[in-house]
Design a protein around this nucleic acid. Sequence first.
DNA 1: AAAGAAATTGAAAATCGATTTCAAAGAATA
DNA 2: TATTCTTTGAAATCGATTTTCAATTTCTTT
Lengths: 142, 142
Amino acid sequence: MDQAKIFNAFMIHKGLKTTNQRKAILNSFLHSRSHCSTEDLYLKLRKKHPKIGYATVHRTLKLLVECGIAIEQNFGDGHARFEPLRADSHHDHLVCQQCGLIIEFEEPQIEELQNQVAAAYQFTIRNHRHELYGLCFRCARK
Amino acid sequence: MDQAKIFNAFMIHKGLKTTNQRKAILNSFLHSRSHCSTEDLYLKLRKKHPKIGYATVHRTLKLLVECGIAIEQNFGDGHARFEPLRADSHHDHLVCQQCGLIIEFEEPQIEELQNQVAAAYQFTIRNHRHELYGLCFRCARK
DNA sequence: AAAGAAATTGAAAATCGATTTCAAAGAATA
DNA sequence: TATTCTTTGAAATCGATTTTCAATTTCTTT
């Protein structure tokens, strides 16, 4: 089942309507670079749909999070960012504080150690965030 | 060198003045439970110093971060939190989404794996955040 | 101790991103 | 088509943070 279908099914389930704006926003989101902010997506959409409103983009992104197509991230610059959520793989992030580059990484051993830590405190993990901030290869040379 | 001295040295270095308010805020901060918000500290201080302003607490906390006595954290509830920074030890957090309990943990193996990940991407880590969100022991039972 | 120069204070206002309101427009159903 | 309900976009609101500014305090120099 692709994301458009997941979205449709969710909309029907909630008694909501699949409008042209929502379709355009979903489509644009899926074809954007990852980790885009509401503003990024809004500006991009304006080019093809000059009358679309910021509020609609915002509301639709929230819907995408609600139905599991997107995940909301925050890397400390005061702008919520959204990225497509793939069911199969989890990853964390390296964030360059100079140029804003975001690198995704996966490290199953860290996940395993995390689980051990949580178990030691009898803590039930629902989700986590793990971000390494610093300088990417390029910026470190300058 | 204790924190009051670090603070004094920093203030002199920057040409700033060590006022009674700043001393009171530093002192109250150091004797507060960890992870207090600006508001927490402001309300606590009001009891002994009824005329102190929120803005002053805010500005002083920023100074404490700047001179390395405090670190700013954000656990996603919309309130920045501050905790005393000890030079010797680093820790990460488990955050209960039900009752707000914050548990600190240290796991050197995770730190080591982090360094390996960064090295693989030729990335220079300046700092990181690693938080596990979910339910604490008590809340999971309910 | 008093005066002058400069920084600090607290109340209120401004800011910033996120969110909500509301009247008009649009979709779905009968 | 009429009715009902949802959605839209502009503007208003929200809540935390940050800044402004006139009055006060601190620090230095007499």
